[in-house]
Simulated scan of single mutants.
Amino acid sequence: MEVNVTGPQRGSVIVGIDGSKPAYRAALWAAEEASRRGTALHLVHGADTDSRALYASVETIERVRRTGRELLDDTARAVTERHPGLRVTKEFSRSGPVPSLHRAAARYGTIVVGSRGLGGFNSLMLGSVGLKVAAEATTPVIVVRGAEGQADTGVVLVGVRDEHDLDCALYGAREAELRKASLRLLHVWNVLQSVGSVVTMLDDIEDIAGEHERSLTAVAEEVRHEFPDLHVEADAAKSMSASGVLVEASRHADLLVMGGRRKPGYIGRTLGRATHNLVHHAECPVLLIPRNGTKNGGES
């Protein structure tokens, strides 16, 4: 099924490359992330030659394989020039990009993808292959978004929906610590979703607001306990659009961390509406942490 040049290490940062500029930028970003974490970078090119072999000529398949391996070599050379001490491994896969990346990440890797790809034969486009990578992953996935070369803000932003996002907040805290940045926990709640009617809203708005504040405060206190030297801010906002508030906040962050909520026994893509909007519109890279659904099976 696969041809490994060198296999990934446990906990590696895994990045998909396809020859597009966004994928190349994602590889450079992933190299910096791996260097920060002190782990290896694993480059994956999913050529999908197994399925194409049924109708493509032998010469075409061989050309695709040669091009893929050259792409791996060129990318590895580029990242090691920038990070000489970084361990870089490479994998040319005969499978498609999605199963190749998931298989390489296994249980312990972090997958990085670009915000869009080439389209066609070797595409890694968010909304098609990249979106499937994010939606079906059981390990963290980072979508590299934002303007190329934008200045660091010194802030890691975490979208907190409720107390079940504690693991997500702790993951964000570790990322902030690695970057020597501060952590901002942001909870966005919709008044009309929290109550059954406007009359109820007018009667209970203070109690509802208090519940949201308490949930956020509980997460923030636990993070401060685990990371006593980290500067942590916790903010709550009321809005009809959680994704809109988070997209605006992402303009002032180096990384946006979100929990990817799933329903038990899910089938197909499982990104909720807010998360789907963020991976398409955020102004900085988005890190998605897989998360099980709540008891009522809700998604965000």
Rank of each mutant, 00 (worst) to 15 (best):
E81I: 11
V88F: 11
L278Q: 09
V198T: 11
E233H: 08
G159F: 01
L86R: 02
L28P: 07
G146M: 02
D48A: 13
G260K: 12
S12E: 03
R145E: 03
H187V: 05
V191M: 10
A56P: 07
L186M: 04
T200M: 04
G96A: 13
A176Y: 05
S123K: 09
H187F: 02
I17T: 08
Y55L: 05
E299H: 14
S93F: 06
T6D: 13
A34D: 00
G127C: 12
A104K: 08
Q9D: 15
V88Q: 05
T75H: 10
R214T: 05
V113M: 04
Q9T: 14
R161C: 08
I111W: 15
V188A: 05
A151Y: 00
V286Q: 00
A253Y: 00
I208Q: 07
V44P: 06
N292I: 14
F121V: 15
E226V: 14
E136V: 12
V286W: 00
G268F: 13
R77H: 12
E148M: 10
A78I: 11
M258F: 04
L71P: 10
E177V: 12
T49G: 01
V247P: 03
F92M: 05
I61Q: 10
A274H: 10
T139D: 00
W29I: 09
H252L: 09
I61D: 13
P290Y: 11
E81A: 14
R77E: 15
G85L: 02
N122H: 15
G127H: 09
R65V: 09
S243C: 10
A26G: 13
V64T: 13
V88C: 08
V5K: 08
R103T: 14
G96V: 03
R261W: 08
L192E: 14
T110D: 03
A47D: 07
V113H: 02
H187W: 03
T294Y: 06
A151P: 01
E211Q: 12
D254A: 05
Q150R: 15
A147C: 12
G109A: 04
V279A: 00
L170S: 09
L28M: 14
